[in-house]
Design a protein around this nucleic acid. Structure first.
Ligand SMILES: [Mn+2]
Ligand SMILES: [Mn+2]
Ligand SMILES: [Zn+2]
Ligand SMILES: [Zn+2]
Lengths: 161, 161
DNA sequence: TGCCTAGTTGCAAATCATTCTCAACTAGAA
DNA sequence: TTCTAGTTGAGAATGATTTGCAACTAGGCA
């Protein structure tokens, strides 16, 4: 629920021109309550302005990622499709259920502890980490253990885009 | 340095037919001392047998991944290209230097601790995790801090394929 | 030891998310 | 208002991976 002026300011502060297209994309991400891919963002954007092209959405997302206004992530093993979210919230990680496709956000300090430890050990400097968990959510895990004897390894990943 | 018979056995034990193509791909991964992508594996395979097709290499890698003989991973942010390694070694994670492209393998218990903790907290069951670190290696980090005032955010990732 | 068939291969075409080209446009500094 | 570096739309290009299909074959069984 931020005013257009606030979004404009965010762009300018990060050295990006505040074009109508960028304002719309940023607003969509601001208001989104789930993680969106470029195609979905494009569709929503076209409700506001039917002339925003998919290419511009991609270009905008890349810019927003470059200046760290938005983070880009992958879900489960489907690293073909990129998802985006605004970087407001605290650091968190994503778990995707292989059965129902649900994405669960999780927090832990252990990952950063690991990075600190490894940085010291190896003398490296971390700048970015891609991490995605997959498995079975509480709703799907029980059903699965019933089937585990009949089904070998066929997991259907339902992406709800 | 495993005999062909050993590789054949590994395939059969996992329910895969031991075709000449698969034996070659598996052998390449067995002997590799670095992480390989499909294209590279295909080129090496073609030294042994010039008729192995790239499609077969891909199909073989997917099978080997399915039965957990081989693990598939990504490096840094370039999740367009998949890399493979045989799953012999202890669990480890991959750090890629954004300047020189070097890949450093790192071990830590912290990640699994995090997963155990999160599994308990959220009642989920983890089955696979994709994780890749990126940043600057000890060789490149110093040079970078000298340039940090002149260069804004142009990192060249040298992929050595 | 040959037979049979479900599984595998080679080849080429298809896929498909993302990037690129380029001419027309514009945000925002001066 | 002017000027220009940065941005856009449209569509073509990219490129790693997958797929369709007809020809082959590994390996279980007789
Ligand atoms: Mn999130
Ligand atoms: Mn490794
Ligand atoms: Zn689920
Ligand atoms: Zn380096």
């Amino acid at each position: 629920m931020q005013t257009k002026q606030y979004l404009r300011q965010q762009l300018n502060e990060h050295g990006l021109r505040a074009t109508p297209q960028r304002l719309i994309v940023l607003q969509i991400l601001e208001q989104a309550e789930r993680h969106l891919d470029a195609e979905t963002i494009s569709q929503i954007a076209n409700i506001h302005d039917p002339y925003i092209s998919l290419a511009t959405v991609y270009r905008t997302l890349n810019k927003l990622k470059d200046v760290d206004l938005v983070s880009q992530l992958y879900f489960a093993r489907d690293h073909k499709r990129e998802y985006y979210e605004k970087v407001d919230k605290a650091e968190h990680y994503h778990f995707t259920c292989l059965t129902c496709g649900k994405v669960i956000e999780m927090q832990t300090k252990r990952i950063n502890q690991a990075k600190d430890e490894l940085a010291g050990e190896h003398g490296v400097a971390f700048s970015h980490t891609c991490m995605c968990f997959e498995g079975y959510c509480p709703d799907c895990a029980p059903k699965r253990s019933d089937l585990i004897h009949t089904i070998t390894s066929q997991h259907t990943l339902n992406h709800e885009h």
